[in-house]
Design a protein around this nucleic acid. Structure first.
Ligand SMILES: [Zn+2]
Ligand SMILES: [Zn+2]
Ligand SMILES: [Zn+2]
Ligand SMILES: [Zn+2]
Lengths: 161, 161
DNA sequence: ACGCCTTGTGTTATATTGTTGCAATTCTAT
DNA sequence: ATAGAATTGCAACAATATAACACAAGGCGT
């Protein structure tokens, strides 16, 4: 289990670690972490709130990058392939992964109020996957669980009003 | 656990049951299962392959319904609210639910080859939900798990070629 | 350094999916 | 009958994602 993003924490640690791991993972895999790709990853890690492709694109455009959709989608595809980010389909958004080294089924809780996403360790989910394989005789290739609701902070704010 | 859609079965039973339950659920809730709504539900149940909104719309248009996007999205919203269909975000598609009576976290396996979707009983998932609530102090409102891979039939076909 | 191949990028256009707003109609209940 | 609510028709439009093709940059053996 990773840290809890709903609690105060030194977020620059999140960012630094993410970028470091991205660099070493790329080196290890012989992949090129180019300027756009790195910048997209940085932007995604600016907060724990998943970002949309066009939200990213707008910022890239301001910063002088080629302001066309393929720019950001290519970078995102690259990052997704390496496991450096996850895609949250229910939000059409992307969020950084905090343990890209090992492939894993993604599981996220997203606060419907503040939008922050917390990735969860997926031991149970791996088990689910195996169970489904036995039950149906299928082979599972991908798996994504998306939970949403209200985080403690937003509950508190709601009470105060 | 529901039946296995990857095995041969009398599919008209699936359809009939689904429509019957839809009618009684609507009556019970004082909701109106209008012509468009019923037709959309029927179309969705034509197979176990999730259908896209515009795929549905094209058929509706052929059948003389108002051929504008809101037509189908409104019907889908209605069906989603009642729990008669589930939305598979990773496919941008919709599939019938086989036990709409009780609200439940959705869990589907979708074959990447033939596209058929099997809904799975979610005992473990309900447990996951509670676990996440305790762990993070959050309240879970929605939950969706989407698995994908290859079903037995498609494995077999692959071998034969 | 040179050519060669692979990978990444620029550019334009287009496809797909989903929403908003408002008027007209139909249903329902008093 | 009539008021209020739910449903539908209609016309734009917004948001998300991909295709196709040309060009540039980097990596590699010679
Ligand atoms: Zn952080
Ligand atoms: Zn992850
Ligand atoms: Zn069936
Ligand atoms: Zn269901």
């Amino acid at each position: 289990m990773s840290q809890n993003v709903y609690e105060p924490h030194n977020h620059s640690h999140c960012v630094d670690h993410a970028i470091d791991r991205a660099r070493s993972l790329c080196e290890q895999r012989g992949a090129r972490l180019t300027k756009v790709r790195l910048r997209v990853l940085e932007l995604i890690w600016q907060s724990h709130k998943p970002m949309g492709a066009y939200e990213l694109l707008a910022i890239l455009a301001q910063e002088g990058f080629n302001p066309a959709p393929p720019t950001v989608y290519r970078a995102l595809d690259f990052l997704l392939d390496l496991g450096l980010v996850h895609r949250l389909h229910s939000l059409n958004a992307f969020v950084g992964c905090n343990h890209p080294e090992d492939q894993h089924p993604a599981c996220f809780f997203v606060c419907e109020q503040c939008g922050k996403a917390q990735e969860l360790a997926a031991d149970k989910l791996q088990a689910l996957s195996r169970q489904v394989e036995e039950l149906l005789g299928v082979t599972v290739n991908h798996q994504l669980t998306e939970l949403s609701g209200i985080c403690p902070g937003c509950k508190q704010k709601a009470l105060e009003q």
